[in-house]
Nucleic acid binder design. Sequence first.
RNA 1: GGUCCGUUCGUCUAGGGGUUAGGACACCAGAUUUUCAUUCUGGUAACACGGGUUCGAUUCCCGUACGGACUACCA
Length: 512
Amino acid sequence: MTREVRVRFAPSPTGALHIGGVRTALYNYLLARQNKGTMILRIEDTDQTRFVQGAEDYILKSLEWAGIKIDEGVGVGGPYAPYRQSERKAIYQKYAQQLLDEGNAYYAFDTEQELDEMRERLKAAGVDNQQYNSITRLQMRNSLTLSKEEVDNLITSGTPYVIRLKVPKKEEVRLNDMIRGWVMVYSSAIDDKVLMKSDGMPTYHLANVVDDYLMKISHVIRGEEWLPSAPLHVLLYKFLGWENEMPQFAHLPLLLKPDGNGKLSKRAADQLGFPIFPLTWKDPESGEVAAGYKESGYLPEALINFLAFLGWNPGTTQEIFSMDELIQAFSVDRISKAGAKFDIQKAQWFNQHYLRSKPAEELAEFLLDSLKKENVPCTLDKAIKIVSVMRDRVTFPKDFWEQGRFFFFAPTTFDEGVVGKKWNDDAVKVLSAYSQEISKLNSFDAVIAKSILEDVTKALGIGSGKIMQALRVSVTGTAGGPDLMIIMEIIGQDEVVKRITYALQTLKTVIS
RNA sequence: GGUCCGUUCGUCUAGGGGUUAGGACACCAGAUUUUCAUUCUGGUAACACGGGUUCGAUUCCCGUACGGACUACCA
């Protein structure tokens, strides 16, 4: 039986979407598109205490920026609406009731304090696992130990209660993960998880299983952190009678910190100076602002390509993939098992690649954007010229401006290394003569600039190579950059003369 | 502690019973470039360990070590 591919990305609106979440969404999306299936966005907001204003909108915007399109779900609607779990309360209650009726779940009235005491007691007795399970539940206050009357009384009197899953004592629970193969766990290792909280909301486990079933999800692709609870979910499918409709599971390897070990965290990213969120995020509580990939100058296609390769590869030597190519090439079998350390240098390499391959007109817009912020006027024509000569030396859009300031402003300081080494009598002689010659010209461009320089150096008997660096530093203030003659052409005749003259005056004192 | 998952260059990874263990990023060197960058060429660098199975294991099996995830009325 081949069933229609329906996958979901199901984040919680508890803050900004983590970069690992973007990769999870991406893999889901790739599988959906490849199989002409459906990509669903479901918001798992069953924990009302952790709800963060604006988080849902942030998730939507992030996915949109990344080029991950949602076919169905929050923001677009669909046949299985609502797609926000907080709006599906009654549905979960119905299935919880079914589990209760069939003896697979029970009411529990234990207070937090009683739970703590139980764990303390077990710990003191040397029990390894202090969990609420087939053994300990017999000592707790629940519908298994209390009489029917007591239970009814407690409920009607408004005593808070939860509904717990009645996990069988000893049973093998198996699951065939698409990435890891068969995983087997004894039910004795699973505790009687809370299914419905005392506020009437379901926990992740119940809501997830119910929704995946009702929304006809075919593949559950999610992070490895869910692997330990997957057997519990299998148990739920079984108890609910949905074993045959159970989706296929694929638990993705985790994204790890670049240095040391452990899950990639915001803290680690902050320390190493790279973003962890797709877009800039301002925490509504603390007001703290965290940088995003977009605002840091990463192109979405570069981020996507980079992320796709963190835990997956096509098995060929091709590394550059557009979204469409990824859709073609993707396969769950080629997802690796081990966690992947996050290497921002590789991300930068992708960014550089994608940036460079854009047409000059598009790159010019980046420059113009920066200039607008600085209130520096510039024509589109000039911007195109500048980005054309700069394109091979930039990694981020902002580099055009940051490394190309001299196209707009005369240098106020001069690279000390160059001045120390190359600013000498010969250089001064050539530059004085050269600026004079240029000032006499009627027309000026790179070719003319070059031939005049050749004439001047020849006349003075000084090799042009010896003074090039001095000329460069006088015009740009820097030691490196694109072809100097073209820079001078863009800057223009008058400005070049002015800059050389200024450098000559300012740096006079260097030669003693 | 318990349960589960994992382990090939510094990093992402390919590979698979006999290979010069391949590629990419990073790094280093050379060439090109008036400079920096680009580009090109080359280089350093890996099968965690111990036992099996086998003529032969990095590859299969079992242990060990190490790492990670989970262990809430969070997801």
